[in-house]
Deep mutational scan, measured.
Amino acid sequence: NKFNKEMRNAYWEILHLPNLNEEQKNAFIQSLYDDPSQSANLLAEAKKLNDAQA
């Protein structure tokens, strides 16, 4: 299933973003579980936030 793979990839990438705190990571990961079809968008948002907090 495409979403499972996308979701897993997004999950791991978000988990390893160095500039997000636990609360931010948890919020993105919760959103992933709530709507796996948004994995790519959530990952993009997480990366933007990560870069902004660098």
Rank of each mutant, 00 (worst) to 15 (best):
N9T: 15
M7W: 15
E22N: 14
W12I: 07
E13T: 15
K25Y: 04
M7L: 08
K48F: 10
L49G: 05
Y33M: 05
N50Q: 03
R8I: 12
E23Y: 09
P18D: 13
L42Q: 06
P18L: 08
E6T: 02
Q30M: 09
Q53F: 09
I14H: 00
Q24L: 08
S31W: 09
N41I: 08
N4R: 01
N50A: 07
M7K: 01
L32F: 02
L49D: 08
K47F: 05
H16Q: 08
N1M: 02
I29W: 15
Q30P: 01
Q24Y: 07
A46L: 01
K5G: 05
L42A: 08
A54D: 10
E45T: 13
K25P: 00
N19H: 08
L17T: 02
E45Y: 09
Q30V: 10
M7I: 06
L49F: 12
N1R: 01
D34P: 06
N50H: 04
H16I: 05
L42H: 07
N9V: 14
K47Y: 05
N50L: 01
Y11K: 07
E13F: 13
N19V: 06
N1Y: 01
L17D: 00
L15I: 15
L49M: 12
L42S: 07
D51A: 10
E23D: 09
P18E: 03
P18R: 11
S31K: 14
A40P: 05
K47M: 05
N26V: 05
I14M: 09
L42T: 00
L42F: 10
L15D: 02
S39I: 07
F28E: 00
D51W: 14
L42V: 11
P18F: 13
L15F: 10
N19L: 04
A54M: 14
E23H: 11
S37R: 06
E13N: 15
E13K: 15
L43D: 01
A27E: 12
A46P: 00
Q24K: 07
N21L: 07
D51N: 04
L17N: 01
K25S: 05
N4T: 04
F28P: 00
L20R: 00
A54P: 13
K48V: 11
D34M: 09
P18T: 11
K48G: 12
N19G: 09
A40R: 05
Q24P: 01
F3E: 06
F3W: 01
N41S: 09
N26G: 08
A54W: 11
Q38I: 10
S37Q: 05
L49E: 13
N9S: 07
Y11R: 10
R8G: 05
L15M: 11
M7A: 14
D35Q: 10
M7H: 05
Y11P: 00
